[in-house]
Design a protein around this nucleic acid. Sequence first.
DNA 1: GTCGCTGCAAAGTCTTTGCAGAGAG
DNA 2: CTCTCTGCAAAGACTTTGCAGCGAC
Lengths: 161, 161
Amino acid sequence: MANITTDFNNKTVEYEQLLSDFKQLLKKNSLKFTIQREVILETLYNSNEHLTPEALHHLIQEKYPELNTGIATVYRTLSLLEDSHVVTSLSFGAQGKKYELDVKIHHDHLICTECGKITEFVDEEIEKRQQIITEKLHFKMTDHSMQIYGICKECQDKIDH
Amino acid sequence: MANITTDFNNKTVEYEQLLSDFKQLLKKNSLKFTIQREVILETLYNSNEHLTPEALHHLIQEKYPELNTGIATVYRTLSLLEDSHVVTSLSFGAQGKKYELDVKIHHDHLICTECGKITEFVDEEIEKRQQIITEKLHFKMTDHSMQIYGICKECQDKIDH
DNA sequence: GTCGCTGCAAAGTCTTTGCAGAGAG
DNA sequence: CTCTCTGCAAAGACTTTGCAGCGAC
C-alpha cells in the first residue's frame, strides 16, 4: 500500500560532482572558492539531518578548529547556497531556519510543532495526484513543496504522560 | 504580490462556540478572561490568513486603538493559545511564525511564478493519502501546507503569443 | 595587485521577561 | 481583596552588516 520512504542517505550526486558544480557556480559569478565554503558544503553533504546555522557552525568548529570559522560566514554561505538552489531552508519558528542540500531525491516533510523534528517521506500517490490536478487546471507545474505539521509520536507520549 | 483568494471562510465551529470553549479553558486553569484575549481570539477567527504576531497586533491596533494592546500581550496570548491547541503556528518558509485557528479546513496553493496569482484547491485523494501517511508514522497531523509552483493558464497563453 | 571574503563586533529583528500598576473573579 | 494580566522597557535570541585586514585568482 503506502510506499513511504524515510531513507535520508539517498544522495543523487556524489560529493566530487557537487563540489565541482559548486566551483563552477562560483566562477560563473566571479565569486571565490574558499576553504570555509568548501568545509560548509562538505559538512552539509555529510550530515543526514536538517541543520540550523548554529549546529552547522558547531560541527565545523569541532572538525576544523584551526579554521576558526565565524558564524557570520556560515550565515553568509548558507544564503549564497540557498540563492543558488544548492540548499533549501525549512523555517520552523522557535528554532529558526534549518538547511539541507537540495540534491537529495525529492521528498516532503513532516514537521513536529512541539519539538521541531523533521521527518522526510515520499508518496507516489501524492506525486501522481499533483500531476493530475495541475493538468486539470491547465497549470504548468515547475516545482512543489509540501509540509505536514503536527505532533510526532514522542511528543504525543510526553503530552499524555 | 497578488492577494490570496479568500474563499475559505469555511469555519468548522461558530465563534460563540469557540469563545465559550476558550472561557471554559481559562476557568479550568484559573486564568482570567480579559478584553485583550477576547480581541485576539476574535481577530484570529475573522482572519482568513495565517497571521504573524506583528500582523495580528496591527489589525487589533487598527480596530481597537483605545485598548492600546501591547505586542507582548499578543505574543503571550498566542503562546497560551498554542499550548492549549486552539491555534497552530507554522511557517511558510519566510521569516517568523504564523498563526491560525486550529478549526479551519485545510487548503493548498497553486502559485504562478509569472503573475504571482495564488489559487487554492483541496484534493480529497491527497488529503486521504496524508492521513494514511501520518497514521502509519504515528504522527498527529494538525495542518499541512502544500505549494505547487508553475505557470498558470493565462500566463502560458501570454507567453505563446 | 585587485577585489571578494573573513572574523569580529556592533547593529538589526523578532520574541521573551521583569516590574509595578490595572483589573477580573 | 487576591492574584493574574497588561503595557512598558529592557533583555535575550537569532541574523545581518560595516569594517579593516586577509587571501584567492
